[in-house]
């Protein structure tokens, strides 16, 4: 009798706790989304990103008008489903590059403002835990990244639909089929994974530096540095012949935060856009390997910064 009772009671208690926890997380998330929505910076950064998608589109038009063969069937932007898909994804690759900056800036700003304004006190004084606050902010930033990638994709698709009007022979939007949609969504997933890493990076830097400026500045410097290092480090390892170093670089760095994205975009584009999108092709790294390394980096950064944030006593 008593065993039956306890087995009935215990799960209920667990459920109540879960609901309380989840409830407060959802409330914090709603509050953070509300703040993002009403923040002018959010809209300015979205505007900048979408502007660069347009820039990629104009580059595309320029490329095609100079190399008309590009729109021949079987070529990169040819008059077939693959060509149409490439037209859309090409715009997104530049959108992703600019979006990295956008997202790192947003992450630095969202976390950093809590340090400069001290507004966290008000929430913490009501019994909310620090790590809950931070988790909700990460979630809000991921929602921001998701909205940004959806908007960029819609813009790129709309511009692709207009392309035949501008350039004779460009693939019409009616060629959009199931497999091109899957391919576009796949590259969106690659972009999101990449941006999640950038969110973790910007937040961690803002927390370590206790300021938005460190998060934003440090994040941007890292993103540029990463491109340079991506070329220098592997070369270094060949020269020095240090086996462990080479293996470490191979395992952790070569499949850097961009590597999964590289695998998520169409092969022809990945090869063509090498310099523009900063993605280093590495035939040794498989997509799952790249994904795992990306996720390990993200989780590691999040754990470290959450631990730092949770232990920090606020203000003076």
């Amino acid at each position: 009798m008593s065993t039956v009772n306890s087995s009935l009671v215990l799960p209920q208690a667990g459920q109540v706790r879960a609901r309380g926890w989840a409830g407060s997380f959802v409330r914090l998330l709603r509050s953070d989304l509300f703040k993002l929505w009403h923040r002018p910076l959010t809209w300015a950064l979205i505007g900048v990103t979408l502007f660069f998608v347009l820039g990629a589109y104009l580059t595309l038009i320029y490329t095609i008008t100079n190399h008309m063969s590009a729109v021949l069937p079987g070529h990169l932007f040819g008059d077939d489903p693959a060509g149409l898909r490439n037209v859309i994804v090409q715009q997104l690759t530049l959108g992703r590059r600019v979006g990295q900056g956008t997202v790192v800036a947003m992450a630095g700003a969202v976390i950093g403002i809590e340090f400069s304004s001290g507004s966290l006190r008000v929430v913490l004084g009501r019994g909310v835990r620090r790590w809950q606050v931070l988790l909700a902010k990460y979630a809000a930033l991921c929602v921001f990244a998701l909205v940004l990638v959806v908007m960029a994709t819609l813009e790129a698709t709309l511009l692709a639909a207009l392309l035949p009007v501008v350039v004779h022979g460009a693939p019409p939007i009616t060629l959009l089929n199931g497999s091109s949609v899957v391919s576009i969504v796949g590259s969106d997933a690659g972009i999101l994974e990449n941006w999640a890493g950038v969110i973790a990076l910007g937040s961690a830097l803002a927390i370590i530096g206790r300021s938005a400026a460190v998060g934003i500045g440090g994040g941007l410097i890292y993103l540029v540095g990463e491109d340079l290092a991506g070329r220098v480090l592997p070369a270094m390892s060949f020269e020095t012949h240090i086996g462990l170093w080479a293996r470490l670089v191979d395992f952790l760095f070569t499949p850097n935060l961009n590597a999964f994205f590289y695998h998520s975009i169409p092969f022809a584009l990945a090869r063509e856009l090498d310099f523009l999108d900063g993605v280093m092709p590495n035939p040794m790294v498989t997509a799952p390997h790249a994904l795992v390394v990306g996720v390990v980096w993200i989780v590691g950064l999040l754990l470290i910064s959450t631990a730092l944030f949770a232990r920090r006593s606020w203000g003076s």
Binding site: L28, K35, H38, R121, R126
Partner: peptide, 30 residues
Amino acid sequence: LPLIGALVEMPAFHPYLSGRDNLRALCRVL
């Protein structure tokens, strides 16, 4: 703690939001 309302040291709010929106953001948390 949810039963306590407090103002510690200097008031601390988000500068880019209106006073009302700052409170609305808090309403969502609470």
